[in-house]
Design a protein around this nucleic acid. Structure first.
Lengths: 138, 138
DNA sequence: GGAAACGATACGCACATGCGTATGATTTGT
DNA sequence: ACAAATCATACGCATGTGCGTATCGTTTCC
């Protein structure tokens, strides 16, 4: 796959390589890829309700419940009733969750740095920008 | 996910967006993503044996059999005994397979072109190059 | 020439995934 | 006030996926 495949194949290849590299790091910190996705999304602060959270990380909403249960059991997040809409629960990182996310994020950055070795800062910037464009274009 | 997520998340997002865009095109041509991956790999000529083919597209080798069965039934590929190793079967594109692959590849390029709209040729080149680097760096 | 490795194939298992559906509590529209 | 929509949650199902394992024919190595 060194050649001019379609972009989807290239993205899949790069994504798989990165996921494989990051997998052991996540495992060391006792998190699954999906659990980390939840922590990262919460840390960023964009999603509040569980439905929004599921959509943001593209995870099945019926399975998010068990995923959150696990994170709650580990004391990384809390599920509090939303005062303005008592149907909804607000999911929030606990201090422990913030700390755990920070540690894992840093460890992941080290791995990424290793994978990116040889690419100039300018290339990295273009890469991120182009990927973001692809992900958000209709 | 417009921000500085980890690269894996960015690749996943871009890959998913591309796959979603390409899905309908593949469906129109009566091919699944995996079937297209087989055709593309064979068209490129890199893999010959079924085991190598499975590894190249990262598909389960025990499921590749049924996948190939479908393609053979449609007359797109053939499974011929390898004269130099009678354990192995050489999988080859038929003329119909070559034609079908070409048609789908062209249709996919149109879709990619639409997704890439707004990115300069230079950016596209850097993107492909960087993704290839990521996919092939250990 | 016999043992070990190998390729294709088959089968089963555990698990993940996506989808539909249901229900209870709550909000919203009229 | 009543109907419809919404959110979290639960359950089940069909399918996809990876993994181990077995068999059969064939090749390789000693």
């Amino acid at each position: 796959m060194t050649e001019d495949d379609d972009l989807a194949a290239l993205c899949a290849g790069a994504g798989r390589a990165l996921a494989e590299a990051e997998g052991p790091v996540l495992a060391e910190h006792g998190l699954s890829m999906w659990q980390y996705a939840v922590l990262a999304t919460l840390a960023h602060g964009s999603a509040s309700s569980q439905l929004a959270l599921a959509q943001e990380i593209h995870y099945d909403k019926t399975r998010l419940i068990a995923l959150l249960d696990g994170l709650v059991a580990e004391g990384l997040v809390t599920r509090a009733p939303d005062p303005s809409d008592r149907r909804a629960r607000i999911v929030r990182l606990t201090p422990a969750g913030i700390q755990r996310h920070g540690a894992v994020r840093d460890a992941i950055r080290v791995v990424e740095e290793r994978k990116l070795a040889g690419l100039s800062p300018e290339v990295r910037r273009v890469l991120r920008s182009a990927l973001t464009h692809l992900a958000n274009t209709d």
